[in-house]
């Protein structure tokens, strides 16, 4: 990225006035994030070409893996629309980047919903099963090519000896899950390992030297850990942002890798707005909490990806 390379590195801290952070502040905020939410980790880059010299070699970017995403955004939005029409209108009226009021209502509603589902595990399983079925129907056409390929492979008999009876299979296909749930219901409340297949995401936060803000990157996987296409990932990005703010670009630290990213062009502006909102209610944002607030605002873009950040940051 030429622009990134030739942009001078920001030295002077002005994050409260501008929303921009310096690489040093990025490291401070990253240390705080990894300390409080150890599911986030610093990634080391050994390839010298992919190493930015304004960041320490062992703290180039942040990474978290296997973040579950059990619901599609549009399913969430459907429920949301039915119950919270008013707020949706406000949101669409603003048409802007972030509306913290919407964000809070949204996340709290989602978490109560999640809670109810935890209480009623079987309902959750059935619900999710329905969602999976919907999705499978939706994705039937897309999958056709892959299936053909898989069939070719299946023709070769690898003649593998079977596993033993003490191996639990993580059942992945809808039919198997269905069968298992039926079996479980018949057996009563006996606990068995049933994993409702769920999508997962790996998330990266890099420092974007051109926009002088953190930047979030996403790689999604389907229920079988197969990489999602960008179109499939749009299901997990809120409608307002899907085509506008998510782009497919070269990752700065992993040469050759194209990855979905939330474009950082308006991050500084939003961060500035959030910082002044906090200031109005008498709270001063310390630089180490910058990424916590960043992750909270990014959640409005990807509301169903359940990554960790300290939730006691209130804006």
């Amino acid at each position: 990225n030429v622009a990134d390379t030739f942009t001078p590195v920001l030295k002077e801290s002005k994050f409260r006035e501008t929303g921009f952070i310096t690489p040093e502040e990025f490291v401070t905020a990253g240390d705080f994030l990894t300390g409080h939410c150890p599911t986030w980790q610093w990634a080391t880059v050994t390839n010298p070409k992919a190493c930015k010299d304004y960041l320490p070699a062992d703290k180039q970017f942040l990474i978290t893996k296997n973040v579950p995403c059990s619901k599609r955004c549009r399913h969430l939005m459907d429920t949301f629309k039915n119950t919270q029409e008013k707020i949706v209108e406000v949101e669409s009226g603003e048409g802007g980047w972030v509306d913290t009021h919407y964000l809070d209502t949204n996340s709290s509603q989602f978490s109560t919903q999640a809670h109810e589902m935890m209480d009623d595990d079987k309902n959750k399983k059935k619900d999710d099963l329905k969602n999976i079925k919907d999705l499978e129907r939706d994705e039937d056409n897309e999958d056709e090519d892959d299936d053909e390929e898989a069939l070719d492979m299946d023709e070769y008999d690898h003649n593998i000896k079977e596993d033993d009876e003490t191996t639990i299979f993580t059942t992945k296909t809808t039919k198997q899950v269905e069968k298992k749930i039926e079996a479980e219901t018949e057996k009563g409340d006996q606990e068995e390992d049933i994993f409702i297949p769920t999508r997962t995401y790996d998330l990266n936060i890099t420092y974007d030297n051109y926009y002088r803000t953190p930047r979030l990157w996403l790689s999604g996987y389907d229920e079988n850990n197969k990489p999602l296409t960008i179109e499939q990932m749009y299901d997990d990005i809120s409608e307002d942002h899907a085509k506008k703010t998510v782009t497919f670009e070269t990752h700065p630290h992993i040469p050759g890798t194209l990855m979905a990213s939330i474009h950082p062009c308006r991050h500084a502006e939003v961060m500035k707005k959030l910082i002044s909102l906090m200031a109005e209610s008498g709270k001063e944002l310390e630089v180490h909490s910058y990424l916590m607030v960043f992750l909270k605002f990014v959640q409005s873009v990807i509301p169903t990806i359940e990554y960790d950040y300290t939730r006691n940051i209130s804006i």
């Binding site: 893996k65 296997n66 596993d163 191996t167 639990i168 299979f169 993580t170 997962t200 790996d202 790689s219 996987y221 850990n225 990489p227 990752h251 992993i254 890798t257 990855m259």
Partner: peptide, 9 residues
């Protein structure tokens, strides 16, 4: 058993 999860990178 383990399930493998391979990042595109």
């Amino acid at each position: 058993p383990f399930s493998s999860c391979i990042n595109p990178s």
